[in-house]
């Protein structure tokens, strides 16, 4: 049986993926946080990806494949630490993969790397420039991670490397920024703007990662769900109430509150509430035959169930 190592295994997506892969792979994993109640026969190491111990784990476990989920995707902590964990952590993972003969790598990037701009075409394909940091410098680490993985893909063609750029993932287990935003009772929006947004159920995301791994996919792929609705429809369907705010008030308020550490949303995130970042999932669907099982209504319901 092939052995797969999952970074960020203790997070919501990591746990789902570990359970999905257990039948066909020997699964082990690493995470900053411990996973209490992990399956007994699964080795889970609590560590920092930037430290020596990560290499030790790879040397002893000798995984055939690595799925890289271990990134900080929120803004609750020190931004410098976030940047370093994400970029240097990814670099270490890629270096160790070469040194210890890993045959497959799946890096879970983000659809946000394209950036939210008024001139975006409605369907962004994988060839579009990664411009997110122009208006949203706080996520330049994600752009750097994606670029590192892309360069790795070309430099080591003998390693099957897949870079996945999923749309907004929702579910009871994942706690992505968009999910936390939609889970609020009153959801702030920008008055006069209602961009189309794409969503993907966490179980479908798990399946997409598993298929990329099992099929040894090589390349960069957008991963798209069952479709798109305007932001305000998504807010209504996930059980929240939209509160439109005038942009000239909203932007300085966010800047102030973020600076003071009151809200975990950088001002750059506001553009994602104004302009669409809708992706074309054609390449991934054609390469894998992937089709999301969950419709939009079920995807929204999964978040409502997560509310309590």
């Amino acid at each position: 049986m092939e052995k797969v190592l999952i970074t960020g295994i203790a997070g919501g997506q990591g746990r789902l993926l570990a359970s999905r892969l257990m039948a066909n792979f020997t699964v082990c994993g690493v995470d900053w946080a411990p996973w209490h109640g992990a399956p007994k026969d699964m080795s889970v190491y609590s560590l920092d990806l930037r430290k020596r111990k990560f290499e030790d784990v790879i040397r002893t476990e000798r995984p055939d494949a690595i799925v890289h989920l271990g990134m900080i995707r929120h803004f609750k902590g020190d931004p410098k630490r976030r940047h370093d964990v994400n970029v240097r952590g990814t670099k270490q993972m890629l270096d160790h993969s070469v040194e210890y003969g890993v045959k497959k790598v799946v890096v879970v990037s983000s659809g946000y790397v394209y950036g939210a701009f008024p001139e975006n075409p409605f369907y962004l394909d994988e060839e579009q420039p990664l411009s997110a940091s122009r208006s949203y410098p706080e996520i330049r680490d994600l752009v750097e991670v994606d670029s590192l993985a892309g360069a790795f893909l070309w430099k080591y063609p003998h390693i099957r490397t897949a870079v996945l750029r999923p749309v907004n993932v929702l579910g009871a287990n994942v706690s992505a920024m968009i999910a936390n935003y939609l889970r609020r009772e009153r959801v702030p929006t920008v008055l006069g703007f209602d961009p189309m947004m794409q969503f993907l159920h966490e179980a479908d995301m798990t399946e997409a990662i598993a298929q990329a791994l099992e099929q040894g996919l090589q390349g960069v792929f957008n991963v798209v769900g069952p479709g798109q609705v305007p932001l305000h429809t998504a807010i209504r369907e996930t059980g929240g109430r939209a509160t439109p705010i005038l942009e000239p008030l909203f932007r300085p308020a966010i800047r102030m509150l973020f600076g003071a550490g009151v809200v975990p949303w950088p001002p750059g995130a506001l553009d994602f509430l104004k302009f669409p970042v809708t992706l074309s999932g054609k390449r991934f669907a054609e390469a894998t035959g992937f089709q999301p099982l969950f419709g939009l209504a079920e995807t929204f319901a999964s978040l409502r169930e997560g509310r309590s």
Binding site: P118, E119, N120, P121, F122, V190, L191, G192, F193, D194, P195, M196, P230, E247, K274, F275
Partner: peptide, 18 residues
């Protein structure tokens, strides 16, 4: 057009794009 409040989504719902 996508930068104008209200016009941005009104144009899109009406079937227009940039």
């Amino acid at each position: 057009i996508p930068q104008l409040p209200f016009m941005s989504w009104a144009a899109e719902r009406g079937g227009n794009l940039v």
